[in-house]
Design a binder for these strands. Structure first.
Lengths: 163, 163
DNA sequence: GTTTACCTTGACGTTCGCGTTAGTGTTTCG
DNA sequence: CGAAACACTAACGCGAACGTCAAGGTAAAC
């Protein structure tokens, strides 16, 4: 049995502190190519690197990948759209960084409001999709009912002698 | 004012019995190219033609186009997937055609059950999407709440004299 | 220290879902 | 009739989202 290679540098006492690209790919179900592609397109911030140049991802990065994938497959956003969204997400980090005393309160407020706005819009999109999906579902269920009716009809015919 | 050209052949006494490709495009919001493309890919059955070769679409065709579009943009299915679905839809017509007395009752039953199966699977897919969307929505709403909290916090700070 | 597994950066290829000419035919208006 | 408006097929083009080599460098195991 070949021994799996473990993440080289882990900040002592933390498990799985950093992951290489292969492990991230395995966990998230995307390919390594996709991870590099996302980075290239600005959907993932350039991860830290091992001395040799190997990418080292954090758990946050993993969550980010999963979020991107959800936004893509479930909501059907393009990667360009998603980029805008995750950039708005970045604001959260920036907000905490901008927390140098109360230096720029209005700037801080503006950023939060921007982030909130983006989020609210996402909710609106979701609501649209939900409504449309529910509509489709009821239509489909009607169809099933109709099919069942036809099948029942066939049963009834079969249980009679002859026409 | 240029007089709009009306569908040439309409079965007397029916309004809008047949539509040309341009009108269908306008109604459905897709381009003529898209309509021909769908036909090419088997998503639309080849429509009837005018003597000169112009396509003549029925209202059913229009509904079909709209359904395809919904499946694509709302549910994010590929055209290949959608083809399978609408083909299952075709079964409905076939069922009525197979209604030559009670000739092949078991065949008829088989087709209905197939159609029902496909529909049930579509409902399952929708349920998955619904669950995922609801999950996302609650997450997003939490985020909004958090943003509001931060904004409120800033308000509170502002209403105080000095730190 | 060499094997082996894993990673790196290019760079070209592919599939999907159409867009966009190009060149030609058809139908309706006046 | 001719001019507009509309349609036809064929074929090449394109952006998105990766897939797939190729030609190496690196890290861990033995």
């Amino acid at each position: 049995m070949t021994t799996k290679r473990a993440p080289t540098i882990e900040p002592a006492s933390q498990e799985h502190a950093y992951l290489q690209i292969g492990e991230v790919a395995e966990r998230t179900g995307v390919t390594q190519r996709t991870l590099r592609f996302y980075e290239e397109k600005g959907l993932l911030k350039p991860p830290s690197r091992l001395d040799g140049g190997f990418r080292l991802y954090s758990e946050d990065d993993v969550r980010r990948v999963e979020e991107v994938k959800r936004l893509q497959t479930l909501l059907g956003f393009t990667l360009a759209d998603i980029k805008d969204m995750v950039e708005a997400e970045e604001i959260k980090s920036q907000i905490k960084a901008t927390y140098r005393r109360d230096a720029e309160v209005s700037e801080r407020r503006a950023k939060i409001e921007k982030a909130k706005e983006v989020t609210v819009r996402q909710v609106a999109v979701i609501d649209q999709k939900l409504a449309a999906l529910l509509d489709m579902k009821s239509h489909l269920e009607e169809k099933v009912t109709r099919y069942d009716g036809w099948l029942q009809h066939l049963d009834d015919l079969a249980s009679l002698p002859a026409g």
